[in-house]
């Protein structure tokens, strides 16, 4: 066993993130760290240090997957270039729609939807975590949208963790695809 480093405990952050958002959706904003840091490492450092060392979600999958995973390599298409690219495009489109909804609320053209949308389909009521009045509506709308995105991707990740290998999610994780792409361009 290798000795544990300070950054080996970010899996706790992963759980904390979802727990905090369960009580107050505004905590969803903290998830932006998981979005910005990998990109900063890739763009500034030309590496995947985030994925390789400190991604809490990856650590969580490794940890849980060591107990409950069939540990079979996923079907070839799941880590093929085209599927990774397609999933990235799909994910970024969904991200764009989420930003647009935030914009609509910002413009007053739409009300805050106090619900978490799972798998872009199932709306789960989440009013208890909604504390309107502290900030403008769009701040909440973004929170719900971003939290939905994070929860949805974690659920997909957990599913493929059980079905295939613990870190199968990482083979098509949009952040992973994006950062590897940036590194490839940078180090050409």
């Amino acid at each position: 066993m290798k000795s544990k480093k300070w950054y080996d405990f970010f899996w706790i952050w992963s759980i904390l993130f979802f727990s905090l958002g369960f009580f107050n959706i505004l905590f969803a904003w903290l998830g932006l760290f998981d979005f910005m840091l990998p990109l900063i490492f890739a763009i500034a450092g030309g590496n995947k240090w985030f994925c390789n060392n400190m991604c809490g979600r990856g650590q969580l999958f490794s940890l849980l997957g060591s107990k409950c995973s069939r540990n079979k390599i996923a079907p070839r298409w799941m880590y093929s270039k085209w599927f990774r690219a397609a999933f990235l495009i799909f994910f970024m489109t969904m991200f764009g729609i989420m930003i647009f909804q935030t914009y609509l609320v910002f413009r007053g053209a739409s009300d805050v939807g106090a619900a978490v949308k799972l798998l872009w389909t199932f709306s789960v009521p989440w009013e208890w975590a909604y504390t309107p009045g502290l900030f403008d509506g769009w701040v909440y709308q973004f929170s719900f949208g971003f939290y939905s995105l994070m929860l949805t991707s974690t659920l997909i990740g957990l599913l493929v963790m059980v079905l295939y290998r613990p870190r199968t999610w990482c083979t098509f994780c949009p952040m992973g695809t994006m950062t590897q792409g940036i590194c490839r361009i940078k180090n050409r």
């Binding site: 990774r84 695809t177 950062t179």
Partner: peptide, 9 residues
């Protein structure tokens, strides 16, 4: 390879 670093660990 997707450069995930799982093998490194």
């Amino acid at each position: 390879c997707v450069a995930c670093g799982v093998c490194v660990r």
